[in-house]
Structures are given as C-alpha cells and as structure tokens.
C-alpha cells in the first residue's frame, strides 16, 4: 500500500469546552486515488469531521496529516490548492451567472487583488464540461434546479483543481437520476487521480461508488474498511441502530430496512 494522503488519528472535538465531545477518538486513513464514503445516520458528526479536515475548526486533540504534514502547518491558500469542498447546500443571494460562480473556484491561485485571467476562464469552462453543464454557462444561479446547482457546486470545486475533494452529503436532496449523475462524476474523478471523500446517510449511494467506508455513529467510528468487508448487515445495523439487511441484486449489494413501524 502506498503512503496515505490523509491520516487522521485520535481526533477529539467539541463545540464548547464544557460540552460533551461531538467527535471521539476518530482514526482512519485515506489512500490516494480512492473514493471513501463516511456513512452514518444524521447527527453522527460527519459534517463536523469535514470541517475539521478543511482546517475550519481546530480539534481538541489528535492529528490530521495531509501527506506527512499536519494541516495546521499549511496556509489557508496552500490548503485550498490541496483540498476542495462541495458544501451540502449553498444559499446564493445574488444572481451570479453559472460561469462567474464556477470561476470563484480559481481563487486559491489568485492574489487578493487579482482578477481571473482568460486561462482561469478556460479552466472554469473545462470544469463545466467535465460535469456536463457547459450549456448552462450563462444561466443565473437562482434559476437552476436542485440537481443543476449541485453540479455547479461540483464544477466550482473542480475549477479549484484539488487533489482531495470533500463532498458533504452530495446526494441527499437529489432525485435518483441526478444522484447517479453525481456518483458517476465521482467515479470519473477517481480515474483522473483525485482522492474523493464524501459523507452520506444513504448506504446505497455509498455502495455504488465507494472503495472504502467509514461508518460513524454518535461521534465515533464504528467500523472502517473496504466496501466488501464493511458493507454488511451486522455492521450497518449497528451503525444505524435499526435492523438492516444487505441483499445482492445483480451482483450489487442493496440494503433493505423493513422494521415494522409502530
């Protein structure tokens, strides 16, 4: 196995010093060029973990190494050239065009007083092409559908040309067709060498593309490992606190949760 691109060890975090920890003893490693899904029920601490990985919040203890350097030792700008974020949702109060918006992804390579160059515009257009929405270039953001906005957010992160892409619940408010388009894009990204890490509460989304899983519940990592070893009825049931069956349909693992409702 090659050297991990991200290694997280013994991470502890709480929002207020006197409150109980939101994250407890989180440890796992991410290999370059893989897709990892952080899977778990709502409130498991997945988004908080993403924020820590971005250096937006400081852990109480533990370490996050990017390559072999702690992320605290990267400047904001350096870090943004390494790691891109696709946020869960984004409220856009002004009517940017899609291209203008995606162009913001070039910020990590520009100084505070710079304007984006023609080359930056070209990279932004490539990013639109990569997610298949080049025809939306001139559309105002508020006119987009939920699925289109999701693709725009991914395109902006791609314009950032990150080596690691973090996505926070990228499929949670998409219909099945848009979910599959999004997952397909993640697959393509892996083939270009980008390391992908996404959170989801939907086991199916994870099973469709992830190589590795990190199962989280109440701020703890329950299980980690490859899809084959981790995506099991017993481990998923433990993580979600409800009975979950994993059945094979056409060679793909599919989950079924049929506990009787009261």
């Amino acid at each position: 196995m090659s050297q991990p691109i991200l290694s997280i060890s013994n991470l502890e975090f709480s929002y207020e010093p006197d409150q109980k920890n939101v994250l407890n003893a989180i440890s796992f490693e991410i290999q370059p060029g893989t897709i990892t899904a952080i899977l778990g029920p709502n409130g498991a601490g997945k988004t908080t973990l993403i924020h820590l990985l971005l250096g937006l919040r400081k852990p109480l203890s533990g370490s996050i190494l990017l390559k072999d350097k702690s992320i605290g030792h990267y400047s904001r700008k350096e870090l943004s050239q390494w790691i891109g974020l696709v946020p869960q949702s984004e409220y856009v109060p002004f009517e940017y065009s899609v291209l203008e918006y995606v162009l913001l992804g070039r910020a990590p390579y520009l100084g505070p007083l710079d304007l984006p160059s023609e080359a930056d515009v070209e990279i932004a257009r490539q990013a639109l092409l990569q997610v298949g929405i080049e025809h939306l270039e001139k559309r105002p953001i508020p006119e987009l559908s939920g699925g289109e906005l999701q693709l725009v957010l991914i395109a902006r992160a791609l314009a950032q040309q990150p080596k690691v892409l973090l996505l926070d619940e990228p499929t949670s408010h998409l219909d099945l067709s848009n979910r599959n388009i999004t997952l397909q894009i993640l697959n393509q990204l892996r083939s270009t060498g980008v390391t992908v890490l996404f959170t989801t509460h939907d086991p199916e989304a994870a099973s469709l593309v992830a190589n590795n899983l990190v199962l989280m519940r109440q701020g703890r990592v329950m299980h980690t490992g490859t899809l084959e070893t981790t995506f099991t009825s017993q481990k998923l049931s433990e993580t979600y606190g409800t009975h979950i069956d994993v059945i094979q349909v056409d060679g793909l693992p599919v989950v079924r949760s049929l506990e009787k409702l009261q």
């Binding site: 943004s80 946020p87 990590p108």
Partner: peptide, 8 residues
C-alpha cells in the same frame, strides 16, 4: 466554510 475552503 466555502470561502475558507477557497483559500480566503
């Protein structure tokens, strides 16, 4: 969060 992730 987004602004910070873009290096701001």
């Amino acid at each position: 969060e987004t602004a910070a992730s873009l290096g701001v």
